Computed example of a mutant assay.
Amino acid sequence: MQFFTQIQDMLIGALGPFGPVIAVGTLGIVLVLLVIPILIKDSKDPLEKLKRDQRERAGASGPDTARLRTNRKNEKLDKYASFLEPQDAKALSQVRLTLLQAGYRTRDAVRYYHFAQLTLALGFLTLGVLYFLIFKSGGKTSAQQAIMYILGPGAIGYMLPKYWVTKRLQQRQEEITDGFPDSLDMMLTCVEAGQSLDQSIVRVSNEIAASYPALAEEYQIVANQIKAGRDKPSVLNEMAERCGVQDISSFVTVLVQSQTFGTSIADALRVYAGEMRDKRVMRAEEKANKLPTKMTLATMMLTVPPLLIILVGPSVIGILELFTMAGQ
């Protein structure tokens, strides 16, 4: 702390009262000037040339078919891949999984996420600088306050995409958790009526699309992947990974074990659907039991002060009048 204080005093003595602000702004400009050439630079990769030749040869069969076969990413973001993607494979996998569970399934989701963080951080930082120069530069503002006015909005802009993705992930998981017991009951009815599990998943996805679109979308993805010829266990495991809900993971385990050991899927669904109904009732009871505790504080804040004013107020006024009369 003493070291930073000495640097601050030195900057103030050399550049005036706003020396730290000028130093931070200069450092930011230098960093931007150093980063821009890295972003603009497009290194020629032999593998990229080979991919480009393959796309040109595939383009003879039509642009839409070529795009579907190569499943290429956004070429505009490819130049900035090293800057918009974490270099650590574990961190990249974690961010991709988080975005996948939040409902962002495109191949460029990680790049768009980091691009949004960078853009909002620079935009809010610019707004902070403009606000400080227009409204606060003429008054008495300390160096710490100036830094907060400038860097605070930039930090908020950087954290805003993360907050948005986290809230979207939580809402999506809550929607899947709420609609899962109903979907199991529908699936059990379809299986007992003679339909296969694949047909049941398609029917359930169509029925719950209006009430629980996120869960219906997951079921539809599973149905399409099974129709494409993929094995059922891997498709179900990917569904559990995309949802990120413990109930879905347990359901996938039940179906995979039922298929592996050759047991009845209807019996497994019946038992698990009953457990999910009981679990939903327990969640409702838990929320109901938390309600009195949450309302206690609001009740005390809204009812106790007026009650005290009504009961104690006249006595306080009478005592004050007595003291006034005694003083006279």
Rank of each mutant, 00 (worst) to 15 (best):
Y80T: 07
R55E: 11
Y113D: 04
F124P: 00
Q94C: 08
A143D: 08
I134Y: 01
F3M: 01
A223I: 08
M187W: 07
L33W: 07
S250Q: 15
M159K: 10
Q145H: 08
S142C: 00
Q54V: 10
S234V: 04
P306K: 12
R280G: 09
N206E: 15
R107F: 09
K49I: 03
L197D: 02
S258F: 06
G128N: 06
M325F: 14
K167Y: 11
K167D: 04
T106E: 15
L127K: 00
G157A: 07
Y163S: 10
I221M: 09
T303S: 13
F251I: 12
I176G: 01
I319A: 07
K167E: 10
S264G: 03
T70Q: 15
T299P: 01
H114A: 10
Q257I: 12
I7P: 01
A284D: 05
S200W: 04
K90Q: 11
Q173P: 05
Q225W: 08
K287Y: 11
K79C: 12
R57T: 15
E174M: 06
F83H: 13
D88C: 05
V245R: 11
A23H: 15
A23I: 09
D9G: 04
A91M: 10
P20R: 14
K49F: 08
E174Q: 12
P233H: 05
L269Q: 06
P46G: 03
L100P: 00
Q2R: 09
A66V: 00
P153K: 06
L118I: 12
A66N: 14
M276I: 12
Q246T: 14
Q144Y: 04
K279E: 15
L133I: 08
P314V: 00
N224D: 14
C190G: 03
V271F: 14
T253M: 12
I150T: 02
L27Y: 15
A109I: 05
I147A: 13
T166H: 08
V129K: 00
Q2I: 07
S93I: 03
P314I: 08
C243L: 02
L100R: 15
